[in-house]
């Protein structure tokens, strides 16, 4: 059995760990609240923008309207925008999103290049031998649209220049404090997709719109302006969702760590008591034995 001093030392170190994780948990709790607020503020606009993109994509004759709406005959390479976090200690957050991304795109039928947002993602992608074309890490803790619009623009430019035939977005969707789902969205080209989550519309839901849009002013002006901006906006919203997910995941992970540490400290304390009691018993036995021997020798 370990001696009392060793057990005492372990108790102290475990209690220290609990203190650190409890502090991290408190920090994450306040961050997640802020991140959620930001996310919920911008969500309606981003969702409606996505609906508008869906409407545009679902109209008949879209193919000839604009290069960003045209599905290419042959898909030779794709770009994947992957959102992870800069920092670890967030439980399974980064592992989940990476596993999802690699399962989906690691052995895709055509070569995939990654635009990585977040240091962890870049590290893990490079370690698994993926092609990383750009790395956006070290973004501010509360990014603004201006901070991240370059990411979307890079994807659109690369697509228009012919460097890729499809652009996908992989991020963590914030469902609730205890549930965050890895998600993928196909950003470009805008093509027909089911109108899931759209306002119940007999015209838009389930089928192609019956009529093509009229555009004011011209279709070229509107689409040139709008499609890249709304695409960048989707990336921005994905970042906000991912940030909220990251902080929520870290908070839960830290709470578990704190609980485990507290429990371990309790077990160690019992052990310490036992060791101490044993030592006292031994001493008493020694004394009693010594007294006995003295009494007999008289």
């Amino acid at each position: 059995m370990a001696n009392a001093r060793e057990v005492k030392k372990r108790i102290r170190s475990v209690k220290n760990i609990a203190q650190v994780t409890r502090a991290l948990q408190a920090v994450s709790a306040s961050r997640v609240r802020k991140a959620m607020e930001r996310m919920f503020h911008t969500r309606p606009y981003a969702n409606k923008a996505w609906n508008v993109l869906t409407h545009i994509a679902n109209q008949p004759g879209r193919e000839n309207l604009h290069p960003l709406l045209t599905t290419r005959d042959e898909v030779k390479s794709i770009i994947v925008v992957l959102v992870t976090s800069d920092r670890g200690l967030a439980g399974p957050y980064n592992t989940n999103i990476m596993r999802f991304a690699l399962e989906t795109f690691g052995k895709y039928e055509v070569p995939a290049r990654f635009i990585s947002v977040g240091r962890k993602g870049t590290e893990l992608l490079l370690r698994s031998g993926q092609n990383v074309m750009a790395d956006f890490s070290g973004l501010p803790a509360e990014p603004t649209f201006a901070d991240v619009s370059a990411i979307g623009r890079l994807a659109v430019e690369e697509y228009l220049a012919g460097g890729a035939d499809e652009v996908h977005l992989v991020y963590t969707d914030f469902v609730s404090m205890i549930r965050q789902d890895p998600t993928r969205k196909k950003l470009l080209p805008l093509e027909f997709r089911s109108a899931e989550g759209l306002v119940a519309s007999e015209y838009a839901a389930g089928g192609e719109s019956k009529a093509a849009y009229e555009y004011e002013p011209g279709e070229r002006e509107i689409l040139d302006e709008m499609v890249p901006r709304f695409t960048a906006l989707q990336v921005f919203q994905a970042m906000l969702e991912s940030l909220a997910s990251e902080h929520a995941a870290r908070m839960v992970a830290m709470r578990n760590a704190t609980e485990n540490a507290t429990e371990l400290a309790g077990i160690l304390q019992l052990e310490y008591n036992k060791v101490r009691q044993q030592a006292i018993t031994n001493e008493i036995l020694d004394i009693v034995g010594g007294a006995e021997a003295l009494a007999q020798s008289k």
């Binding site: 409407h55 719109s209 009529a211 849009y213 555009y215 004011e216 002013p217 509107i222």
Partner: peptide, 19 residues
């Protein structure tokens, strides 16, 4: 306030995308 002047939109309007 549409790009080309005021627009009144009633139900069953044709699809329009306007700034």
């Amino acid at each position: 306030p549409g790009e080309d002047g005021e627009m009144g939109v009633l139900p069953h309007h044709a699809p329009v995308l306007s700034t």
